[in-house]
Design a protein around this nucleic acid. Structure first.
Length: 1029
RNA sequence: GCAGAAGUGGUGGAAUUGGUAGACACGCUGGACUUAAAAUCCAGUGGGCAGUAAUGCUCGUGCGGGUUCAAGUCCCGCCUUCUGUACCA
């Protein structure tokens, strides 16, 4: 009876699907446990071996929890809106929904064959109208809410309207736009409906505003900061420029402090928390106002420059101010003499792309405006400059420059010869700024003199507030999140426009379904792709989507038909609350029912990649807090514990071509023509395209050049071989050389050979790095005419390097082939066996035979004379010991997510039981259970053959009993000065003194001591003995 | 620049509170079975030195110091690689 994994795995996958073994119930007496994976984007390339890593880990955990008596929710779905499907649609005209559907089918098939215990009855797809109905619903909730800073929570916008109507906005303390004017109840009543809406928009948690965005012309869309890598788009690497656009934004900044505080409550990896903390970027300081004065008359101008500073204590060190070139005051305060210079500079900076600005951080540039500001305390006038090191988008877009305490201000001042007053006690600032705030003591600063940092901070903020120059403030680096995308394949907004003001469509008419378009590109006049839709208007009479030509009036006021929003939502919209929807995915009336969400509460374990640290994982926390405020969900943080699985890197394979360097020989007459020809030659043979050389020959070529020439015989032998090879490579070149008439005029340097490597698909390379070049030549047109040069053996070797697994690097390994060859259980165990879950690790299939033969050995334990059979005999203490030590270790490993070590533990157990020839039910039955989370198919089959008629999946996990591990004797390692020399077996009943006597009496101890008396004998009971000489 | 993670045999990795460094597996070497191959099984396998051998000695966890009876593990100072981030006032 062989281990027939194909049949076993097929059978059980069918069984689980038919019996819905892993369907979770929303009301159960068992305690709940929610295990979640980050749902995948179904790309056209299908799954590669890196994807299942996290899924296998979470599946092991979920299965383990079922054995431990939990009602486990382990759902899966698809984040199916996204750019690749849209780009594919642009190229081929194929509707994204069709390609997405096809990709999902492939994913599902691939996932199914790995044997995951997902509850597919709860599947969600973000691109499915029945799902994005709720994304739209949450959007509406955000629109209908504002953030009350007093209550520190989101409140209904109608509450705000009520306050406005009774007392205006004097007392409102809300997270809102900066430019809100104060009004009273009477003002409010007299405002037109449009004016009211405009004001309310400034308070809403999702709002329209003109924002400077990262516009990518090539993609025709706005990109979020985290979609830009090194100044170009993450996808496609296109340039990104800054542009002002009317956009939906999410007021995530309202939640900055809570997002920060919440981190303390959750068990997430510290690096991930660190990057969120940094991203939110809280800094404490003060807002200070500087009055602008006219340069000539020294009279106050009606302008103030507000700056945010984290070092108000250094305010007496201010010797100039710097504004961002885009700052609105720049044009107002610039003096006529400076106008031209300022305008030129502004133009130059706006042209510079993000990429350029980032590339030369070191270049200092700026222009004096001609205007001065008055120092609020000293009354001194300080010049106002503009400079692009000040960013318009952060703080107020202006800084008070303290060159002695800030590196950039220092560099700027040095560069433009601005005064650098020193306001630190006992510090030399002639070479660089003094930035160590904790140890600073203030000097030359009036009432701050002699105060250390903390005291100076308190004092100055008190004074600033007292004198009315400003106030203490906490600033955050976090920006409000732009929520509009100029794409087709995303959630449409439930929004239409009436007189240019956005209106929400009532919940009962959701979902607003994505319209059909002919082209997925932006329209010719620059509208988003939805601008191509002809049926994309909202009829408020019928509450349906109707044809655009029914819009009766440009502003849409007459017939009650209005144009719908043309933007769609960004990628993170659909993923920001999907984990709540899984709890009640079929509910058509509510996002999630009270019963369901109160039962499941939150995710107990969330597994996914760390690349989502500042994107998905921040936005989803924000939405969760909002939904918590609204009473939709019962907890503020949705994931108690999070694990980042490491990346699996691929082992890329390379083939190398050789290239030659040519020199003209010294002392030879060289004509212009010759020179041209030489360049021609260099161009053509920089790389010899039609010959590829095996790696062993390349190593040989490198090695032989520097060979020790004193060993004559060997040297000559090698040089001969080398010459043959080089000549072979050079021959066609020689021909060319003679054609060009360059013989005897140039030198080919065969010492400094250049090698050029090209990726070759790993599919053609076996685990010994041998390339099947015959097949490659047949199947890949690029290599049809190429000659593969090998050593005598005719074996072609590739060179290898570890890189990120990616299609473009031709190193993607697909799990399907492994499932076919070794089975899902082997794949699962092997992926875990690779190394610690959270570390990145290279993929090498060579080790898979190890886990495969382990599974075969496991199977054999249950087989006697080719028949499945176990004995009911009582196991020996030794056999019990093997079992219980395995249970103990595996449970500890699961708790620590150390799945790689539990695989070795299983191997050790099976090796030991095989050695013991153990065939006893009392051992082998529990063994099948503890191995089930890792290798569920074989475990089910063993369980069935052990005589059980139901699935093993919820059988109680064997209980570890320490009594089986109690030892009576210990083999003590005996060390001398910490170096282990020999072992001595002693009873564990012995006391320290008795052990010492026994050890000192031992002949080997005597041998080592050679009659010397040890200084000290250290004995750790049950562990070690160390003799100090 | 800043933040984080990591560095252990030919390879992936183990060593949970400082206590036998290299578990487990791959690979490699030798052997058994076989006409042969695959599969399977057995033995060996960090480097160096000595010895016919059993064995012994010695070096060894990126580098340099330190604490300790004892350091891969703790402390100080560096180096390298990876990942994230980008003038945040």
């Amino acid at each position: 009876m062989e281990y027939n994994f194909r049949k076993i795995e097929d059978d059980w996958q069918k069984y689980w699907a038919e019996k819905q073994t892993f369907k979770a119930e929303n009301n159960a007496t068992k305690p709940k446990y929610y295990v979640l994976d980050m749902f995948p984007y179904p790309s056209g390339a299908g799954l590669h071996v890196g994807h299942p890593l996290g899924y296998i880990a979470s599946d092991i955990y979920a299965r383990y929890k079922r054995h431990k008596g939990f009602n486990v929710l382990h759902p899966q779905g698809y984040d199916s809106f996204g750019l690749p499907a849209e780009q594919y649609a642009i190229q081929t005209g194929q509707h994204p929904a069709i390609t997405t559907e096809a990709n999902i089918k492939t994913y599902r098939k691939q996932l199914d064959q790995i044997g995951f215990s997902f509850d597919w009855s709860r599947e969600v797809r973000t691109s499915d109208p029945s799902y994005y109905k709720w994304t739209q619903w949450i959007f509406i909730q955000l629109f209908e809410s504002y953030y009350c800073k007093d209550a520190n929570q989101a409140r209904s916008i109608s509450e705000l309207e009520a306050v406005f109507a009774t007392e205006g906005n004097y007392r409102i303390n809300a997270a809102c736009d900066d430019n809100i004017e104060i009004f009273g109840a009477d003002d409010w009543k007299n405002y037109s409906e449009e004016q009211k809406q405009k004001i309310l928009l400034k308070y809403r948690l999702t709002f329209l505003s003109e924002t400077e965005v990262n516009w990518c012309p090539a993609l025709g869309t706005v990109l979020a900061n985290d979609e830009i890598v090194n100044g170009v788009s993450e996808r496609g690497g296109h340039t990104v420029i800054r542009k002002k656009m009317m956009q939906w934004s999410m007021r995530i900044t309202a939640y900055a402090q809570r997002l920060l505080d919440g981190l303390a409550k959750i068990d997430w990896p510290q690096p991930l928390k660190d990057s969120q903390t940094y991203w939110i970027g809280r800094s404490e300081g003060a807002m200070v106002s500087f009055n602008v004065i006219a340069s000539e008359t020294k009279q106050s101008l009606p302008y103030k420059i507000d700056v945010f500073t984290t070092r108000p204590d250094t305010i007496f060190g201010v010797s100039f101010m710097t504004l961002a070139p885009e700052h609105e005051l720049v044009s107002k305060i610039t003096t006529p003499e400076q106008k031209e210079a300022i305008e030129t500079y502004k133009k130059a900076t706006s042209k510079r792309s993000e990429l350029e600005r980032m590339a030369d951080v070191k270049t200092i540039s700026g222009v004096f405006t001609g205007a001065y500001a008055q120092h609020p305390f000293s009354g001194k006038e300080v010049p106002i400059w503009i400079g692009d090191y000040v960013l318009a988008g952060y703080g107020t877009g202006a800084v008070m420059s303290v060159p002695c305490g800030d590196e950039r201000d220092y560099a700027f001042a040095k560069h433009f010869n601005i005064e650098i007053p020193n306001i630190f006690e006992g510090v030399d600032i002639s070479e660089e700024a003094y930035t160590d705030k904790e140890n600073s003591v203030i000097a030359n600063s009036d009432f701050l003199n002699g105060l250390p940092y903390k005291k100076a901070m308190k004092t100055i903020i008190y004074e600033i507030e007292k004198r009315g120059f400003g106030y203490g403030k906490i600033n955050y680096r976090l920006r409000d999140a732009v929520f509009s995308r100029q794409r087709y394949w995303g959630e449409p907004f439930p929004v239409y426009y009436k007189n240019g003001m956005p209106q929400m469509i009532d919940k009962q008419y959701l979902p607003i379904v994505l319209p059909e378009v002919e082209k997925y590109l932006p329209t010719e006049d620059g509208q988003p792709p939805l601008g191509n839709a002809t049926t994309w208007a909202w009829d408020t009479n019928t509450n349906t989507i109707v044809s655009n030509d029914k819009i009766s009036h440009p502003s849409g006021d007459l017939g009650g038909v209005f144009s719908l929003e043309l933007n769609t939502m960004p990628g993170w919209a659909g993923s920001s609350s999907y984990f709540n929807r899984y709890m009640d995915s079929e509910n058509t009336e509510e996002f999630v029912s009270k019963e369901a969400v109160n039962y499941w509460q939150d995710v107990d374990l969330y597994i996914g990649g760390s690349e989502h640290a500042t994107g998905h994982l921040l936005y989803s926390r924000f939405w969760q807090m909002f939904l918590y405020d609204k009473g939709v969900v019962p907890v503020e943080e949705y994931a108690k514990k999070l694990i980042n699985q490491g990346m699996i890197t691929g082992t890329s394979a390379f083939v190398k071509r050789v290239g030659f360097t040519f020199f003209n020989l010294a002392g030879i007459d060289f004509s212009v023509k010759d020179n041209e020809n030489l360049n021609l030659l260099r161009e053509e043979f920089k790389v010899v395209k039609d010959k590829i050389i095996s790696e062993d020959l390349i190593l040989y070529l490198k090695k032989t050049y520097n060979l020790d020439k004193t060993n004559n015989k060997e040297h000559i032998e090698h040089m001969k071989k080398r010459e043959v090879l080089i000549n072979y490579l050079i021959n066609p070149i020689s021909q060319k050389i003679s054609e060009l008439g360059l013989i005897d005029k140039i030198l080919i340097d065969d010492g400094d050979l250049q090698f050029f490597k090209t990726h070759v698909s790993v599919d053609y390379v076996n685990s010994n790095d041998q390339l099947d070049f015959e097949r490659l030549k047949k199947e890949d047109i690029l290599y049809k005419e190429v000659e593969f040069i090998t050593a005598d053996s005719n074996i072609f070797l590739c060179s290898r390097e570890v890189e990120k697994m990616s299609k473009s690097k031709y190193n993607v390994v697909n799990p399907d082939q492994i499932c076919v060859e070794y089975g899902a259980d082997s794949l699962r165990m092997f992926e875990m066996f690779l190394g610690p879950l959270e570390q990145s690790k290279p993929w090498k299939t060579s080790g898979i035979s190890g886990v495969y033969s382990f599974l075969k050995k496991l199977w054999k334990l249950y087989i006697v004379n080719d028949v499945f059979s176990v004995s009911d005999e009582e196991p020996t203490p030794e056999e019990f010991k093997v079992l219980h030590k395995t249970i103990k270790k595996v449970e500890e490993d699961i708790a620590n997510f150390s799945f790689n070590t539990s695989v070795s533990t299983f191997m050790i157990a099976v090796n030991e039981l095989t050695a013991l020839k153990c065939n006893k039910r009392a051992i082998l039955e529990p063994l099948a259970i503890i191995i089930e989370p890792y290798a569920p198919h074989i475990a089910e089959e063993l369980w069935k053959n052990l005589g059980h008629s139901t699935s093993i999946s919820t059988v109680e996990f064997p209980v570890f009993e320490p009594k089986y591990l109690v030892e009576s004797r210990k083999e003590y390692p005996v060390s001398f000065n910490g170096k282990m020399r020999f072992k001595i077996e002693l009873s564990l009943d012995l006391g320290i003194k008795e052990i010492e006597d026994a050890v000192l009496a031992h002949e080997k101890t005597q041998e080592h001591l050679q009659g010397r008396i040890p200084k000290k004998v250290i004995i750790v009971h049950g562990k070690i003995i160390n003799i100090v000489e």
